[in-house]
């Protein structure tokens, strides 16, 4: 495969974005391209472990790091961009840990050696980058403003960062590096949304958990947390909640009919991805932004508002 050109970045899609969350995947690619960076998928990717491997020692780090190896080996890129916060967490966790702990690094390299797929050792010299942080730092808010052709005037958005985009800073380096977001009060999505012309609302649950990790075996917890978040956003006057993680979408969007069934209409609010709103403001059609994929039917409110 060809090495990356300038204005291209190695991109890790992950399982959700390639399947049910294609709206996030495609809109991310669209807006990145519009802002001047083409996201190039690494070939032959594997699952990051989605947090279910943490009790498996170095194997949990092998999963994401194999993808880092692919990026370097196949695309010649040390860094890897991704849109899913869970993947982002798994990647940054593994990189941070092996950087700090020689034993864990050797254990991971043992697995690499045994698998025999690459002829080199893994060296933790690259970074995992979340699409939000990546676009913010590489292109900036001004670039967003420049690309807006249909400002989202009058749309009130509740930005929802969730957990793993900003936490824990020992893995994500939030608060630490000068250009990283704040771990307790992240702002990058706010700035992007405001650059799109939308209005952001403060509702207090911006970094609250959606319970997505346990959603299959422990709906109760997840539904309760989601209901709190949605109703708070609604109370604060939001028209939509903007996400940057497919797991959050699983909890807030896909399960919303069940949450409403249990907690009532207060917990009903359209859910969209940040990148979908960006695509819309950048002049792509609602169809291109695939708003119809969302279960919570954001199209209704977007149509009402005249976008």
């Amino acid at each position: 495969m060809d090495k990356l050109k300038e204005n291209q970045a190695a991109y890790y899609p992950g399982c959700a974005l390639l399947t049910i969350d294609r709206a996030y995947n495609n809109s991310s690619k669209l807006v990145s391209k519009k802002m001047g960076i083409e996201l190039v998928e690494i070939p032959d990717y594997n699952c990051c472990g989605i947090g279910e491997m943490k009790s498996k020692g170095a194997a949990s780090m092998y999963m994401p790091l194999r993808n880092m190896m692919l990026a370097k080996n196949r695309l010649g890129s040390k860094n890897l961009v991704m849109a899913c916060s869970v993947c982002y967490h798994e990647f940054s966790r593994s990189i941070a840990r092996v950087k700090e702990n020689q034993n864990e690094l050797s254990a991971v390299n043992e697995i690499f050696k045994e698998a025999g797929e690459f002829n080199e050792e893994y060296i933790p010299d690259g970074e995992a980058r979340h699409i939000l942080e990546f676009l913010y730092n590489e292109k900036g808010v001004e670039e967003v403003k420049k690309n807006v052709v249909k400002p989202l005037k009058g749309l009130k958005v509740a930005p929802y960062y969730g957990c793993l985009y900003s936490r824990p800073s020992m893995y994500t380096f939030t608060d630490k590096k000068p250009k990283m977001d704040n771990s307790e009060r992240p702002r990058f999505m706010h700035e992007f949304l405001e650059a799109l012309g939308a209005e952001t609302v403060f509702y207090g649950n911006e970094v609250q958990c959606c319970g997505g990790r346990n959603v299959v075996q422990d709906e109760e917890t997840s539904f309760t947390l989601c209901s709190q978040t949605i109703s708070k956003a609604k109370k604060a006057g939001a028209d939509v909640i903007a996400l940057i993680c497919p797991k959050c979408a699983g909890a807030l969007d896909v399960n919303q009919p069940k949450i409403v069934e249990k907690f009532g209409k207060d917990s009903e609010l359209p859910i969209v991805y940040l990148t979908q709103l960006m695509a819309l403001a950048f002049g792509f059609s609602k169809k291109e932004a695939e708003f119809s994929d969302m279960i919570s039917e954001p199209l209704k409110v977007l149509n009402e508002k005249g976008f």
């Binding site: 594997n46 498996k56 170095a58 194997a59 092998y62 697995i111 045994e114 698998a115 025999g116 797929e117």
Partner: peptide
């Protein structure tokens, strides 16, 4: 060629 990774991880564990 996932099976090589699978086996390597299982051996490690």
């Amino acid at each position: 060629n996932w099976s090589s990774s699978k086996e390597a991880m299982e051996n490690y564990l």
